[in-house]
Amino acid sequence: MNARIRHPEPTEGAAARTVQRRDGKGAHNVRDEVACEVPVALHYNDQPFAVLMATPRDLADLAVGFSVSEALIPDAGELQIEAIDESIDGIAIRMRIPEPRHAALADRQRALPGYGGCGICGSASIEAVLRAPPRIASTPRIAETALHRALDALHECQPLNAATGATHAAGFADRSGTLLLVREDVGRHNALDKLVGAMATQGIDAGSGFAIVTSRASYELAMKAAHVGIPLLAAISAPTTLAIALAESADLCLVGFARDGHCAVYAHPERLIPSSAEQSR
């Protein structure tokens, strides 16, 4: 009798699929890991609010981070996750917040569904999107070498992307560049929300370090970072004009093209100590 071939379990957040690989020698079928993307419905006080297309892992972090970074609640202490229900259609996260907060959601109501690729799809009004975050209170200065240290470490902390090649990551590092937390998702906004939620749950002060993301620096990401008080956001790709404008008004240091030992600072460069200044000390 032939022994049964045992395939390793897929990485959390991925599923095994058969793919036909082709090259100059022909075609052959192999097992591949593919990133999961499912509808995740967010319900507050028994009412649907938004649907995100997300990777089904770290969902409690997603619920907390979305609620805080979207200014639905001021802090994680006001949120109670009652259930995370899975069905054939997707996942529903059922949460409860104070009734006055819930009553205010009518002004922020999102049309369903929303999408993982767009953090503001379905927002009911321009005012709901272009809300002004408070100015960032903390004023740490981050060394450029610390930024690149964290970016180098991030490459080794993305198991889902290593398996699938299809996800973004968001990480938070302390001022020395030591990476403290990383979260992954098919949506860049979801990855940052998961990071914010994990930080809130673990009691990590948003003003004590900086965030890095493996995507462009969109307005939504800058807004989320600024709202929770992260003083520096670095992206491996480009920012947008609206992200720069928001960063300037919120005292957020916004860094783009942060990779391979280089970066471009688009707002508040005084928060990032250049390598030349470090060497002259």
Rank of each mutant, 00 (worst) to 15 (best):
P56Q: 08
V213T: 12
T164L: 06
A104D: 00
N2L: 05
V30W: 10
A16K: 00
E220H: 08
A200H: 01
G207Y: 06
M1L: 10
I97D: 01
F257I: 03
S215E: 03
A153W: 13
S218H: 07
A277W: 05
M1F: 09
A27C: 09
A16Y: 02
I244T: 14
Q158A: 15
I84R: 01
A245Y: 10
T11I: 05
P274A: 04
F210T: 02
L59V: 05
A60Q: 15
A200D: 06
H168Y: 15
A225M: 04
R135C: 14
T18R: 15
L79Q: 06
A211C: 11
I126G: 03
S208F: 04
I91H: 08
G117I: 12
T241K: 13
A166M: 13
S176I: 11
Q80G: 06
L112G: 07
R57Q: 13
A63T: 08
G177C: 12
C121R: 00
L179A: 12
A211T: 08
A27Y: 13
L252N: 09
R216S: 12
C263P: 01
A71K: 00
S275W: 00
M223C: 07
E78K: 05
G209P: 09
A83M: 06
I230H: 13
C253G: 15
T18L: 15
R271M: 09
A143R: 15
Y44W: 07
L252S: 11
D251F: 00
S123M: 08
A103D: 11
